[in-house]
Design a protein around this nucleic acid. Structure first.
Length: 902
RNA sequence: GGGCGGUUAGCUCAGCUGGUUAGAGCGUUGCGUUGACAUCGCAAAGGUCGUAGGUUCGAGUCCUAUACCGCCCA
């Protein structure tokens, strides 16, 4: 393809898929140093990320787009730095979510999972997985993800299932897993226990019910008690009061009668009771309230469960058996009212536990579950972060992590589901013993009986996710991958799963491999709509990344997500923002077209050594500075800021200034044209390399054309780091130390060409002279600025579209110059004049100059005060010198203005 | 109740270890299209950086208090 054929606008539709497939087919996504291959070099340090496995049957949303963008950015950056890089993709079986989807499909046939049985159900779920499971992986590819797809993993694969079993049995053997009846969070809809983390608490209006708790030995006497959940009265096993409460002291030790059931229960004293709350007397329902459960443990109280698994009342509810919990509450309360046991009801704000998934009210309930004893494991995980083996970015999440880890509770890992890793425990029907094994047993470990059956429950999905960084690499086997790629490098994910997932990986990693599974945790924020609202289907403010990519391109979406966010901070996204970055992609494209065209028209080689223009020097110096900044920012995980620096440099400096000036320099032909083209190629090449991890498609496509055009022209147009097969595997620009000439080159160009051209342009605009209409102008400069301005005279004239430009240090003819429109440049002490035809001293001009003078005067005043203060003694000499120069410049500006206004 | 963030231009947000005229995108206003780009260019308007103290020669940046908003944990 020649440059003539490059379309005027970047066509991402025709580019993205083709480029992705090419990368993939070239094997660029696979690590360059593979421990399974003969030329493997174990001394090279790899960079490894394990993907946060998305739900296998889910569809892509912005959260995925976010983590893919950030991780791909890191992976591409390290790959370009020449490190062997591995990004392991995969997905999660998502027990509850997936099971629900299959159950929903079954329901449409009028069936339940029980109808078809466990085996058939699981089979069905697998075929569901096969059908929909690939979807999200395809969508992740669209985002440009450079994962090694040959190493893709799924939590229910054989290998990973083995890892889960190994983990469970190991913990069991260490005595860190136990089973028992405990109070758990019961999800009535899902009919399973869920972990503390899967419960959200919401403030909701409710009622506080006051009633009489009659004394057993004297039914005329009663204790007033308040509750928010009257139906739990049926499960009360005590009434508690504060030991120091004078109102109730006399009741302690006596018995009360459970309303309607007339069951005798003790009245106890416990300091947990809040005397201020309600009546100061607390009913205790250990089977259905976590605090009551704790009290029951202390006082050895009975624990009476009153609920069935479908949260209807069970046989312990006496006459209320079979009623739903809501219905029971109404009936029981009505019955108590009829008996005169009710005192009052008052409105009260409840703290309602709701399922994170379905939103239904979670019922605390006693049931037989499996738990991981977490204390000792958590301690190691705390130490790892405290000792710096693991660093959390941004830093403030370290505190959040400690806070949670230090108050962690044992983890309920069993789920009453069918889709997942079945608990590897077998019960003997004969001796009742338990067999816990890595391999499915044929007989009881204890009595040898063959009458054994496996535990019905499966493990929490997070149990397998916690093993992810090493299970994906082959653990428990000592595979070459595990040996080389583990521990991984960075774990990147949203802060919302810091506890769910990150903390568990850290605990598991330390427990099973004796190593921190990664050295850095990078947490990104949540994506909200443009006004900071959470996106939700009901609000209708959901942005679908697939739609955005269709409309504006993948690069635009990626760049927006990457540059619009700081680590750990939520980000507000709107299509407008993506649009702005689509424009950026187009800007890159068109700058590229210009450069390619410039190459074509440039000579093949120069006649002599280069003579750089001030613009060339400025651009090279700025480029070097940007490379240093970007490298520094990448190293400190400030990717957004890095992207912004490249964006600004590319658009506001390279495109707006240098390319414009290059047009003039190219027209000079000869060596000037050659070295200008050479500069254009080198700078564009560096920018494309640094942008590649942000916007991989447009940069790859353009770089291909650039390389081709440059190579076709001359070997001499080769950039610093040589051309590579593809941009995505080209060498990353490394920082080079600052050299003496750079600062001066930047300052000179900014002060001369940029400042003066801008001033002329503004003046033209004010005078309604079309920007491209040539006029003549003068600069009255300070003596210091004169040589600099002289050197850039042509550049200034060109950039200001001036037909003629004179540079002087004093006005040659005051009377004439007073007639010209003028303006001062405070930063350089210059005065500029436009030699307009209609010489007018209108009030507006005077006013303007007076305004400039008063501004200059106030600055002079400010600086004089500043320099007369302690500042001059205490501030570093450099800073003081800077201010002195500034003052001098303002003085010169003021002088010139005064003369002009005389 | 404990903890963590945020508060900067009309909107959405940057602003690293404090350095002295606070930036961007979008929006608004004016001008502009025969060659990189109207998915654009040139220019303009717009902010006492939530409030009150403090440290410092110097504070958007550090400290203390406080208000409001949000989140996490209990």
């Amino acid at each position: 393809m020649t440059q003539k054929e490059l379309p005027k606008a970047y066509d991402f539709h025709g580019t993205e898929e083709r480029i992705y497939q090419w990368w993939d087919s070239q094997g660029y996504f696979q690590p360059t140093n593979d421990p399974n291959k003969p030329d493997f070099d174990p001394t090279k340090k790899p960079f490894v990320i394990a993907i946060p496995p998305p739900n296998v049957t889910g569809g892509l949303h912005l959260g995925h787009a976010m983590f893919v963008s950030i991780e791909d950015l890191m992976i591409r950056y390290h790959r370009m730095k020449g490190e062997p890089t591995l990004w392991i993709p995969g997905s999660d079986h998502a027990g509850i979510a997936t099971q629900l989807q299959v159950e929903k499909a079954l329901a449409q046939e009028g069936k339940t999972r029980e109808d078809i049985g466990r085996e058939a159900f699981i089979e069905r779920t697998w075929s569901w997985k096969k059908k929909y499971g690939g979807m999200i992986q395809q969508q992740i590819r669209r985002l440009g993800a450079s994962c090694d797809w040959t190493r893709e993993r799924f939590t229910l694969d054989d290998g990973l299932s083995r890892a889960v079993r190994e983990a469970f049995v190991t913990l069991y053997e260490k005595g860190l897993i136990y089973r028992g009846p405990r109070l758990v969070n019961w999800s009535p809809n899902l009919r399973t226990a869920v972990s503390d983390l899967e419960v959200e608490h919401s403030q909701e209006p409710g009622t506080l019910y006051y009633f009489k708790y009659p004394l057993a030995d004297n039914p005329e006497e009663f204790l007033p008690v308040a509750t928010t959940r009257p139906e739990t009265i049926l499960g009360d096993t005590a009434v508690a009061v504060h030991p120091d409460d004078p109102r109730y002291k006399k009741y302690v030790g006596r018995k009360a009668l459970v309303p309607m059931l007339d069951r005798e229960i003790p009245i106890i004293a416990d300091e947990y009771v809040d005397r201020e709350f309600g009546t100061g007397a607390l009913k205790i329902t250990p089977a259905h309230d976590p605090n009551d459960y704790d009290i029951a443990q202390r006082h050895n109280l009975d624990i009476i469960n009153i609920l069935n698994k479908d949260v209807t009342i069970n046989e312990n509810g006496g006459p209320y058996q079979g009623l739903d919990r809501e219905e029971c509450r109404k009936r029981l309360w009505a019955d108590m009212k009829a008996r005169g046991m009710v005192i009052k009801e008052e409105p009260y704000t409840l703290n309602v536990p709701r399922s994170q998934r379905g939103g239904e009210i979670i019922e605390p309930m006693i049931s037989e579950q499996w738990f991981v004893k977490i204390d000792s494991i958590a301690k190691k995980a705390i130490d790892a972060v405290r000792d710096g083996d693991i660093r959390i970015v941004p830093d403030h999440f370290t505190k959040v992590y400690f806070n949670w880890m230090e108050n962690i509770q044992d983890w309920c890992i069993s789920r009453q589901l069918w889709w997942g890793h079945r608990i590897p425990v077998w019960y003997c029907d004969d001796c009742k013993g338990m067999t816990v094994q890595r391999e499915d047993p044929a007989q009881c470990q204890h009595c040898g009986s063959t009458h054994i059956h496996q535990d019905d429950d499966v493990l929490d999905t997070w149990f397998s996710s916690g093993l992810w960084p090493f299970s994906t690499l082959g653990w428990p086997d000592e595979t070459p991958d595990l040996k080389y790629f583990y521990p991984t490098s960075v774990l990147e994910t949203g802060y919302d799963i810091l506890f769910f997932w990150v903390a568990r990986m850290i605990m598991d990693g330390l427990e099973f491999t004796d190593e921190a599974p990664f050295h850095t945790v990078y947490l990104h924020g949540l994506i909200r709509d443009e006004h900071g609202q959470k996106m939700s289907k009901t609000k209708g403010n959901v942005i679908d990344p697939l739609v955005v990519m269709d409309k504006l391109g993948t690069d635009a979406l990626r760049f927006t997500l990457l540059v619009g966010s700081a680590p750990g901070n939520d980000m507000n996204l709107s299509e407008k923002k993506v649009e702005a970055n689509r424009n950026f992609a187009n800007k890159i494209w068109n700058a590229g077209r210009f450069v390619i065209n410039a190459i074509a028209n440039a000579p093949e080689k120069p006649e002599r050594e280069p003579v750089w223009t001030p613009a060339d020097e400025w651009l090279h110096a700025r480029m070097r500075e940007v490379v240093r900044n970007v490298n520094r920012l990448f190293e400190s995980y400030q990717f957004g800021e890095a992207g912004r620096q490249i964006y600004d440099f590319f658009w506001s400096e390279f495109a707006d200034w240098y390319i414009e000036i290059a047009k003039m320099q190219l027209r000079e032909s000869g060596d000037r044209a050659f070295y200008t083209a050479w500069t254009l190629v080198r700078v564009l090449d560096k920018c494309l390399r640094m942008l590649s991890p942000f916007t991989p498609y447009v940069t790859e496509e353009l770089w291909g054309h650039l390389k081709q055009a440059a190579q076709a022209k001359s070997e001499l147009l080769c950039p610093d780091d040589p051309w590579a097969e593809a941009l995505m595997i080209a060498q990353w620009p490394e920082s080079k130390p600052e050299e003496g000439w750079e600062k001066e080159a930047v300052e000179k160009f900014a002060n001369a060409t940029m400042e003066h051209s801008r001033a002329f342009r503004t003046l033209k605009t004010e005078l309604n002279i079309p920007a491209n209409q040539a006029a003549s102008g003068s600069i009255i400069a300070t003596h210091e600025m004169l040589p600099v301005l002289e050197a850039q005279k042509d550049l200034i004239a060109y950039s200001s579209a001036l037909k003629e430009l004179e540079i002087l240090t004093a006005v040659p003819d005051a009377e004439v110059y007073k007639q010209f429109h003028s303006s001062s440049i405070a930063a350089t002490g210059s005065m500029i004049y436009l030699h307009t035809q209609e010489a007018v001293v209108d009030d507006k001009l005077r006013e303007k100059l007076e305004r400039e003078l008063s501004e200059a005067n106030s600055q002079i005043q400010r600086l004089e005060n500043l320099l007369a203060s302690d500042f001059a003694n205490k501030a570093p000499a450099k800073v003081v010198e800077n201010e002195r120069t500034k003052l001098e410049t303002y003085r010169q500006t003021a002088e010139k203005l005064k003369k002009q206004l005389k």
